[in-house]
């Protein structure tokens, strides 16, 4: 059965309140992971330089529905759909929503890698997706 893979970016409108932005994102990703497990969605959420970069993999209809929900969410600004493709296999099949944030592993090259991914988005979306996968694999141990 074919799987849809969607890549989008948006600018965060999260404001530090009772929780810091990092904690809010951890919570959002955690909640999303639970819902995604039920809906059969896998993917990754990257947060770098105030920007969300997210990949959603799953059945076309479900991906469509989740993306509509994101588009209806005012915590995002400047939502940009970068890529929507039909793929044979999931790339992130082990993660219902992995998450990589700038500052997760101070002292390593993670932050640079994430900024690089952000730059790649505008150049070659497919390469950006592969790079996100590689980065996730190499920091899997460090990142919560």
């Amino acid at each position: 059965m074919p799987i849809s893979r969607l890549l989008y970016s948006s600018v965060s409108r999260l404001e530090p309140g009772a929780l810091t932005i990092d904690r809010q994102i951890t919570r959002i990703a955690g909640e999303a992971a639970l819902l995604n497990e039920e809906a059969g969605i896998t993917g990754i959420l990257v947060f770098v330089e105030d920007q969300f970069i997210q990949i959603l993999e799953g059945e076309a209809e479900v991906v469509e529905e989740i993306f509509e929900r994101i588009c209806c969410d005012f915590r995002h600004a400047q939502v940009r759909l970068i890529d929507l493709v039909s793929v044979k296999e999931r790339l992130f099949d082990r993660w219902h929503m992995a998450r990589l944030c700038e500052g997760d592993d101070p002292g390593s090259s993670l932050d640079d890698d994430l900024r690089n991914i952000r730059y790649l988005l505008g150049v070659n979306a497919r390469v950006a997706v592969e790079r996100m996968h590689e980065t996730l694999l190499s920091y899997e141990e460090v990142v919560p």
Partner: peptide, 17 residues
């Protein structure tokens, strides 16, 4: 502003962007 913003966001409908 919210109306303009939310309407300008993309939409995927039955695979069509």
């Amino acid at each position: 502003e919210r109306v303009v913003e939310i309407l300008s966001r993309p939409m995927i409908i039955e695979g069509n962007v």
